[in-house]
Design a protein around this nucleic acid. Structure first.
Lengths: 187, 187
DNA sequence: GTCTATACAGTGATAGAC
DNA sequence: GTCTATCACTGTATAGAC
């Protein structure tokens, strides 16, 4: 007979932690709030993450990184550039739920949490920009412009997340992404 | 004879608090860290801000709002639009220290701190966008484009802050602002 | 107006029963 | 693998001496 209570594996816990860190930030995500929202006791959490809250956040960041590597960066490096870039905008809108979900890496970059995860944060954005700039070059864009254009696109997504949350306006997020998508391939 | 110790007024404390909230975030800025960094005891802090940490953050947000109203929004509504827009970019670069200093309002928008200060956060960005869109219209830009262009500029500054901090690259911030300034008046 | 002392809930973390 | 109990510490907040 299977147990009535839900049993977790570490891999099941990470997505739950991700949403909590996204909503509350690193400092705001206290162990009791994590316990409260997941129903997982402190004992279990420390069983999965002996390094405590820092290991939890690191695991979340690693999973975010894997997701973007697989569904955004790799396609940008490998696939037809125009298709991969179109898929990037589509994936970004879906992943960030049209501004309803923030970018954890971007949020961590803003306060002192940055110090804890500096290289992870740096790599996430650096690889995004590199992959996008590479795709732009392959699509015929001069290398001299490609990097700045890529930076602008990545930065625009982060800004759209901030502004759409500040104004509580998901339509703004979609509109901004559409405009950036057009500008990226035309200008 | 004047006292050896520094005596503060409430108005002197607010800028100190601003930098601490910027660096640590709302949750990360604990009273002991505030005391430690400012040298002001808890008794004094609660004398100035009976409402505790929330009142401290509200006072900081109010001061930020006043600064932008005076040096950015009002000029955009009142002065020659081209000059006011040029001044906006210059002021933004100076205020945010080329990405070395974040936007507290934007940072608060990202996590649950948003709930505490929702209307303040909303107003800050809404008035910025309105003032900028108005200046663009006065400079001859079609009203149909002005709002989206204004949103894009405001969002771009927020994104540039995130990205320049993530990559620890102030040059990127300046570069991005230059590019956005050009695009705002040409496209 | 600022200090020290202190209240007491909440913090991350650990140990041991099951 | 999960629970309860508990640790030492830090959190916000208050009171009273000066």
């Amino acid at each position: 007979m299977s147990a009535l209570r839900t049993l977790y594996e570490r891999a099941d816990v990470v997505p739950l932690l991700a949403e909590i860190f996204r909503e509350l930030g690193f400092e705001g995500a206290t162990l009791s709030r994590i316990t409260e929202r997941t129903g997982i006791g402190k004992g279990s959490l420390y069983h999965f993450f002996p390094g405590g809250k820092e290991e939890m956040a690191a695991a979340v960041l690693a999973e975010v990184d894997t997701w973007f590597e697989q569904f955004v960066y790799e396609p940008l490096r490998r696939d037809d550039p125009a298709e991969a870039i179109a898929a990037m905008w589509k994936n970004a809108d879906a992943y960030f739920r049209s501004g309803g979900r923030i970018c954890l890496v971007g949020a961590f970059a803003l306060d002192e949490t940055r110090e804890r995860f500096a290289t992870t944060i740096n790599d996430y954005f650096q690889r995004w920009i590199d992959a996008l700039a590479g795709a732009l070059v392959r699509s015929g864009r001069p290398a001299s412009e490609a990097r700045a254009a890529a930076e602008n696109a990545v930065l625009g997504i982060q800004g759209a997340l901030v502004l759409s949350r500040a104004l509580d306006d998901k339509a703004l997020f979609k509109r901004a992404l559409d405009q950036m998508a057009k500008r990226l391939i035309t200008s």
